[in-house]
Every structure is written in C-alpha cells, then in structure tokens.
Nucleic acid binder design. Sequence first.
DNA 1: GTGGTCTAGACCACA
DNA 2: GTGGTCTAGACCACA
Lengths: 121, 121, 121, 121
Amino acid sequence: MITIDYSDRRPIYEQLVDKIKNLILIGLLKPDEQLPSVRILATELSINPNTIQRAYAELERQGVIYVVKGRGNYVAQTTNLLAQHKEEIKGKIEAIVEEAKKANVTKEEVIEEVTKCYDKC
Amino acid sequence: MITIDYSDRRPIYEQLVDKIKNLILIGLLKPDEQLPSVRILATELSINPNTIQRAYAELERQGVIYVVKGRGNYVAQTTNLLAQHKEEIKGKIEAIVEEAKKANVTKEEVIEEVTKCYDKC
Amino acid sequence: MITIDYSDRRPIYEQLVDKIKNLILIGLLKPDEQLPSVRILATELSINPNTIQRAYAELERQGVIYVVKGRGNYVAQTTNLLAQHKEEIKGKIEAIVEEAKKANVTKEEVIEEVTKCYDKC
Amino acid sequence: MITIDYSDRRPIYEQLVDKIKNLILIGLLKPDEQLPSVRILATELSINPNTIQRAYAELERQGVIYVVKGRGNYVAQTTNLLAQHKEEIKGKIEAIVEEAKKANVTKEEVIEEVTKCYDKC
DNA sequence: GTGGTCTAGACCACA
DNA sequence: GTGGTCTAGACCACA
C-alpha cells in the first residue's frame, strides 16, 4: 500500500505524510479507520520506527488523523482535507504565476502549457 | 544588492545562487561584468567566504558565471539562462497540473486561478 | 580499498571521486551497496570529513551514488556509468588526434603507437 | 597573434606557453627572432606583466626560448621542439590506451575512433 | 548514527 | 589581490 522512494530527495517522514494523506483523499483509508501501528509499519517498510512516529505526529498536527492513547491512530473526518488540498494547490499556482510574470511569460503561454498538460500527460 | 533571508529555510549558498541568477535575469548584472570578490562579498554580507565560494562554484557549474583564476568571477553570456528559466517554469507548471488532476481540480478551475493571479497579484 | 596519493597534484576530493567511480566500474562496489559513512571514511583515511562530504556530493551530482538522508550513501545503478566512461575515453581520443594532426603526426604513426601500447604495456 | 581564452580553465601563463610553442612549431616565430617584451605583450593582451614573465620563464626552462639580459627574449633553435612535441603526444596516447584497456575498450574500437577523427574532424 | 551546512582560519597557485 | 582546497569543529535535520 505504501512504498518509499529513496531516489526522492525529500525526507522519508515527509513522503509518508503525503502518501497517507493521498490514501485518504482517494478513499482507500476511510474516516475512523485504524492506521497500522508504528511498529508494524516500521518493520513492513524496513524503516526506523522514529520515522513513522514522526510522520504520524505531523499528520495529527495537521488534523488528518487522531490518536487514542494506548489504542492507536485513526483517520480523522476528511471534510477539511479536500478543501485544504485545493487551497494548497491554488497557493502553488499563485506562486508559479508570480514567477512566470517576473520572467515575462505571458498569461497566454501559461494557459497554453496548462492546457497541453491537461490533455496529454 | 544582495540580502540573505535567515527565515528562509533554504541554505544560504542556495539563496545566493538564486539571487545572483535573478540579478542577471533582470539585467542588473551584465555579461562579462565582474562579480564582487569572494572575500568582499563575504564581509559585506557578514558571511563566511566558504559559503560565497560554494555559491560561486555552483553558478560556474551551471554555466551562469565563469572564473578566471587569480582575477575573479565574471557573468557569462545570458543567452541560455533565459531559455533555461522558462523551461524550469514550464516544468513547475506541469508538476502542479498533475497534482491538480489527481485532486480532481478541473482545467477550468486552474485557468481561472491563473487568470485571477495575472490580473490582480 | 581507497588510498590518497599526496604526490598527485589533483585535489583530494577529486581523487576520491575517481577512485570510487573506479571501484564501481571494476565491480568492487555493487549497485545499492552502502558506502562507508562520511565520518568513518574520514578517520580511516585521516582526512577531514568535509573533504569526503565534498567528494560524495560530487558523486551524487553525477548520479553515481544516491543519498538517503539520515541513512547513508549508496551506489546507484551502473548502467550509465559504463557508457559515460566509454564516451569520455572517445572524447579524449578525439582531442589527442586533433593535436597529432596539428603536429603532422600521421594516422599510421598514431595507430602504430596504439598497437604497440596494446601489445606491450 | 596571441589570444587568451578565458573560458579555458587552464591558467593564463600555461595558455601563453602553449600558444608561443605553437607559433614556433608552425613557423610564425623563427629561431633567434625576438619575442615581444614583457611590458608590451602585457599591455597588448591586457594581462598582468607577472603572468607574461612567468610564461617566458617557463619557456626558458623548457629550452624553447633564451634570454639575453637587458636585451630581450629570443626563440631558440627548434630542432628539439618538434621531437619533444611528438614524444609528448606519444605519451598521451600511451596514457589513453591504458585507460581504454581498463575500460575493456578493444584495440579495434580505439583504432576505429582514431580513423574516424582523422577522416572527419 | 547519518549526511548537510556553516564558521574560522590556514595555505597555495595564479595574476 | 583573486579564487581553490583543506582542516577543525560546531550545530542541525533526519532515521
């Protein structure tokens, strides 16, 4: 279900956070479903338990999962997640547009590139 | 001309690389113009010379500047720089579009966001 | 396994890069094998860790090794390395031939020298 | 007659040495002909006189020119120069062949590359 | 423990 | 003076 890409330059815990959020977004992990325990996931992925712990802590901080002490980690309600993700994407678009403007890339060029990507890739 | 943003999480040498590329792109540094010497820039920014050295070395590797031993660092011809920068921006657009598609953001929504940013921000 | 030649005029980090590439080429270091840590290799060779770090960074930039943060450096897939090396050699042959032509050394003389070296040395 | 290539990574004095040797080899500078004075050449090339001085010193050390104190620098007899140059080229061929052998490049491949370069480039 | 960045300071080749 | 390399040692993020 989860794989680590070691050629990815981002830290492992960050990849984990993204992967799990994605599993929730695409519906493979449902609200209130229990996540694998830190130990199990650690051995499964042959990763240091500290790393899993850190990823779970970050997910909790973002309100994506909730922790029940002594029992485990559970998927939180997804209502916000989708909206959050969309906002995040919009933020990224804003950033890239600003950069494009500075580089004298016209609105038309950007839209053309967007269209091309939507159709092909 | 150049300032370091210590709240920026990226390493100093990387910020320097970007700042200098930018100064070239906007025309404040012209081809064959001499860059401030490693030592001078180091004292000016109260940064260790090694860090400046590292930034200059990276810029040379990218072909943005050229080094004449014992004389100094000079801005290279900018022909490629502009094209490279545009390609970089297109790559970023591609990445964000892929992410948007996965999140079920429609092409129309992306284009709307792009248009909004171009007009306002 | 690795030794530094202090009579060699090239910088240490460059020697290290070449030595490690060679160990991979001759098969003593295999893909996905872990390289000695920066600190360990540094003490082993009585060299400053920074110098090892620099060599490893250059090897990563060339795609010869890959880094997993917090875990270590690993040998990358060698497919390209061999092809790259052959291309490099061809480039050198081209350069020397151009020089030979300028010096009025005939093709026959060059080939004779090549043959002699292949048979003897 | 002489130009400096600042994109060449070799030090300037080394380029000067090679350029002057070349002018002698191709007959543009004849035995006992006087070389331009250090000062004149320095201003002509907008180069530090120290650099010219160093190049001339190196040429004298190699026996390519001779110095008459208070009068100037003169081209030495060329007899050896040609032979020396050929030997140098042979040495380089030897080095590249050794490298090729280590990389399992066959004699045939090397000769093919040599032939190709002689015919085309 | 592992790599990444940075400072402080030395020494060298080159101009 | 100019860049290039290296040592010694610190501190940080990550596993």
